[in-house]
Computed example of a mutant assay.
Amino acid sequence: MFRIGITGGIGSGKSIVCRLFQVLGAPVYDSDARAKWLMSHDVLLRDELTAAFGSATFDATGQLDRVYLARVAFTDPTQLARLNALVHPAVGRDFEAWSITQEIVGSRYLLKEAALLYESGAYRQLDQIITVFAPQPVRQMRVLRRDPHRTPDDVLAIIGKQMSEEEKVQRAEHVIYNDDEHLLIPQVLTLHEAFSR
């Protein structure tokens, strides 16, 4: 079974590309959504988060205090690296278990969607990578339209912390251009047919 990674910077359109693959019957693992779920439900990860960031990481009802964790981790690069060092391996374990299930049910290939596919080392679990590419002005406009609470400077700050699109394109085996000039569906269909053989 082929294991394909799909990545791209904020606003590139990874999610819409993944939805197109899902319409074609491809199973998609959403790393960000699973990371959020695991932080609340994976017992080992919960214990590690509490040990690393203190008892305030979870509130009195046992729910993850995302505001607290964001304040502690996302303002300090050292603490962010510490958080990632706990969450990324948990996501990796979860993905491996999910992949086995997909193989059992007979999937020809699967997709793992992750913004930080290279940065987290998750690309090592995969056979090939697709980068969804869009120019920075297009990405910035999309994010501002999608997230009206963000400012242009917020978006530029996020883009500045991510691996450059050029490097992602160079490292990927496949590129899907979601730049408002190329049609998405034919690009996805071509890859789907190749992966399904």
Rank of each mutant, 00 (worst) to 15 (best):
G62L: 07
L144E: 05
F58D: 02
R82L: 12
V175C: 11
A194S: 12
S99T: 11
A35Y: 12
I185D: 12
Q187A: 11
V138W: 02
Q63E: 15
G11L: 02
E113A: 11
Y123M: 06
E193S: 14
L83M: 13
M39F: 03
V188Q: 02
G92R: 15
L49P: 05
Q170W: 02
Y68H: 15
W37V: 12
D30L: 05
V132N: 10
I158A: 02
A85V: 10
L20P: 00
S99L: 13
T151H: 12
T131F: 04
R145W: 03
V17N: 09
Q136R: 14
V188Y: 02
P135S: 12
E181G: 09
G5E: 08
R46D: 08
W98F: 10
R124N: 05
G8H: 03
E167W: 08
I130W: 04
Q125C: 06
T57W: 01
P152I: 11
Q63W: 02
L44M: 09
A35S: 15
D94M: 09
T131H: 13
T131R: 09
V175T: 14
R145I: 03
D179T: 01
L38H: 09
L20D: 01
I100M: 02
S164V: 07
I104P: 02
A70N: 13
L20C: 14
R93A: 00
G62N: 13
Q63M: 13
L156T: 06
T61K: 14
L126A: 02
I185G: 00
F2Y: 12
V132T: 04
L117N: 04
L64S: 03
D127R: 11
L86P: 10
L111R: 03
I129S: 07
A90W: 09
V169W: 01
V169K: 10
E96H: 14
L116Q: 08
E165K: 03
T151M: 07
A52D: 09
F95V: 03
V155N: 03
C18Y: 03
D32Y: 13
L64D: 02
E165D: 15
I130N: 11
L191K: 05
V91S: 07
E119C: 02
G54K: 03
F21P: 05
R124V: 08
H149I: 11
D32E: 05
D76I: 06
L38A: 09
I129L: 13
I6F: 09
K161T: 05
A85I: 11
E119T: 08
A26E: 01
V138I: 15
I16Q: 11
H192R: 10
Y177C: 14
G5H: 04
G11Q: 01
I159N: 00
V132S: 12
N178Q: 10
A73S: 13
K36P: 00
Q125G: 01
Q170H: 14
A97L: 15
V17G: 07
A122I: 09
V155C: 09
V143M: 07
D154V: 02
V67T: 15
A81I: 01
R93H: 10
V188D: 13
Q79H: 15
A85T: 07
A73P: 06
